[in-house]
Simulated scan of single mutants.
Amino acid sequence: MEVRYATNPAATKTYDSETLRSEFLIENLFVPGQLNLVYSHVDRFITGGVIPTAEPIKLEADKREMGADFFLERREIGIINVGPKGSVTVDGTEYELDTKDGLYIGLGNKEVIFKSADAANPARFYLSSTPAHKNYPTVKIALSEAESEHLGSITSSNERVIHRYIHLNGVQSCQLVMGMTLLKPGNMWNTMPCHTHNRRSEVYFYFDMPEDGLVFHLMGEPSETRHLVVRNEQAVISPSWSIHSGVGTNNYTFIWAMAGENQVFHDMDMVAPKDLR
């Protein structure tokens, strides 16, 4: 498990591109036959990716970093399959996940096993985990069952559909809020006008991008913006004080996960474009 420590805005505005990437960008989540995890001290997020091939892969706790006997001893987790069909078995109960289906698993579940339906065409499970204080039921969320909202327009290049999987009006959790945004063809901007939410942090995971596609992810304080060049299946850790917006070379999809003081999706401190620097 890789560990990332939290940083502050005063230090961040002095970073060069290499330092920004090493602090905030997660580049190599998906490796066939492996489970890769990054532990961030920003709201204690754990972000991960797993591609089970010939053999199933079990979710294990890193005892040194987590101080736990099993991964969900004091945590909850949200999972979205961004690849072909697969399944997640939770304490003996199997949940089949098609492309873009999600799964919430609550605190206290001891065994989580990932498996692909076809080892030659494996599933790709994206994971986001946060600390938890009580157990909520394990729930599968099919893409068709997620709460959906159509936003934006082609004239501002941000027509998109937001799918909310884990949220106050849907699948319940202790603090994790998780969903997915799909940009329509011909649209490249996300979360613009942008915002911050000093009461919670966020992790963005970009995918459904062509091999030569990229996103310029905007971050930093509104008066001290920076950017990260992000490619397919890479994630960005976004501290509470940072904007989190971006523009791509083509349309793309991203998964967002939030944690912090509350779970109110629309609790945002909006930033007018004229105030960005």
Rank of each mutant, 00 (worst) to 15 (best):
residue 238 S to A: 11
residue 219 M to Q: 02
residue 187 N to L: 08
residue 17 S to R: 11
residue 256 W to S: 09
residue 234 Q to G: 05
residue 254 F to N: 03
residue 237 I to M: 11
residue 72 L to P: 02
residue 194 C to E: 08
residue 120 A to P: 01
residue 227 H to A: 15
residue 94 E to S: 15
residue 157 S to M: 10
residue 276 L to F: 02
residue 192 M to E: 11
residue 83 G to M: 06
residue 208 D to Y: 02
residue 11 A to Q: 13
residue 196 T to N: 03
residue 16 D to C: 06
residue 42 V to F: 06
residue 86 G to M: 07
residue 148 S to C: 04
residue 175 Q to K: 14
residue 176 L to P: 02
residue 277 R to K: 15
residue 148 S to P: 03
residue 38 V to C: 10
residue 189 W to N: 09
residue 67 G to A: 08
residue 151 L to M: 12
residue 48 G to I: 01
residue 66 M to Y: 05
residue 114 F to T: 03
residue 271 V to Q: 09
residue 83 G to S: 01
residue 200 R to H: 12
residue 174 C to R: 11
residue 247 V to R: 09
residue 82 V to N: 08
residue 19 T to Y: 06
residue 18 E to W: 10
residue 94 E to D: 11
residue 271 V to H: 04
residue 158 N to A: 04
residue 243 I to R: 01
residue 239 P to G: 08
residue 205 F to D: 04
residue 207 F to E: 01
residue 163 H to D: 05
residue 250 N to G: 15
residue 114 F to E: 05
residue 118 D to F: 08
residue 193 P to H: 04
residue 165 Y to D: 03
residue 143 L to F: 04
residue 250 N to P: 00
residue 125 F to Y: 10
residue 212 D to M: 12
residue 184 K to R: 13
residue 57 I to L: 14
residue 269 D to S: 15
residue 78 G to H: 01
residue 43 D to F: 07
residue 117 A to V: 09
residue 262 N to M: 02
residue 121 N to W: 05
residue 35 L to S: 10
residue 67 G to K: 06
residue 206 Y to K: 05
residue 224 E to T: 13
residue 125 F to K: 07
residue 44 R to I: 00
residue 164 R to P: 00
residue 109 N to V: 01
residue 153 S to T: 14
residue 208 D to H: 07
residue 159 E to K: 14
residue 95 Y to G: 05
residue 226 R to M: 14
residue 180 M to D: 09
